[in-house]
Design a protein around this nucleic acid. Structure first.
Lengths: 118, 118
DNA sequence: AGTATTTGTTAGTTGACACTTACGTAAGTC
DNA sequence: GACTTACGTAAGTGTCAACTAACAAATACT
């Protein structure tokens, strides 16, 4: 997950998302030296976010979407909880209105400012 | 997205995922000083990943799953492309088998080592 | 064989960031 | 008002990572 922190890394990923590209072609798309690209590719390779295919002296890279599964699971954890929270609030408002014993939390999380739920 | 690079930040997010907590309570869960937690909370707050509720001298924080929508869109971009790639390969194998003109890429991406598709 | 091309790797420097220590601020209590 | 509690902020330090420059390795070509 740390590999995606750098924007350059994400740009490289988007570059080799659709088609595979050689390391040199990738380097020409940035204002960086080729060694820098090699290091970024090494990080992406170690994180199993790209696959490497060697053809002669050139090495072609391609994105590997399955490598993002861990991050996807992390996000779904939060997303599922959000749905569960809404469901729980709804059913606690309907059925068991007894309350769980004067909890000092006013909850107040309804008018949450803005809601940019995609 | 940079805010999620630090594992501490993600731990804090998981901590305030279900219930809201005060800054002091959050700090007791780590081997860090309270100012360090304050700085992490500032980053999370600026990234709109948590919401702040002030009650007297205390400040309660809670995760804001909507703040992860950008990251979610980024991931879905890759995921949707993967599905499109599979679909495209399938229909090119069925209908238009003419080929698009002797491309020098053996493609080779079928037995892709391992496939940990969640 | 020798030379050029394409790439990865190592050494070293610079910048960013996570952390601690110290201080400032706001709200409650006497 | 003075004191305590809870928290944030400012300044300083150390560490990690991203970058450049120089070198090494593997293949293609003559």
């Amino acid at each position: 997950m740390q590999a995606l922190a750098q924007p350059r890394r994400r740009e490289i990923l988007e570059l080799v998302r659709a088609r595979e590209m050689s390391a040199g072609d990738i380097a020409t798309h940035f204002d960086l030296t080729r060694p820098a690209i090699s290091q970024h590719l090494k990080v992406l390779r170690d994180s199993r976010l790209v696959t490497e295919r060697r053809d002669g002296t050139r090495r072609f890279y391609r994105a590997r979407p399955e490598g993002l599964s861990d991050l996807r699971k992390f996000l779904e954890l939060f997303w599922d909880y959000r749905l569960g929270m809404l469901k729980d609030a709804a059913e606690s408002d309907q059925t068991r209105r007894a309350g769980r014993g004067a909890s000092p939390e006013p909850s107040e999380g309804k008018g949450d400012s803005d809601s940019d739920v995609s």
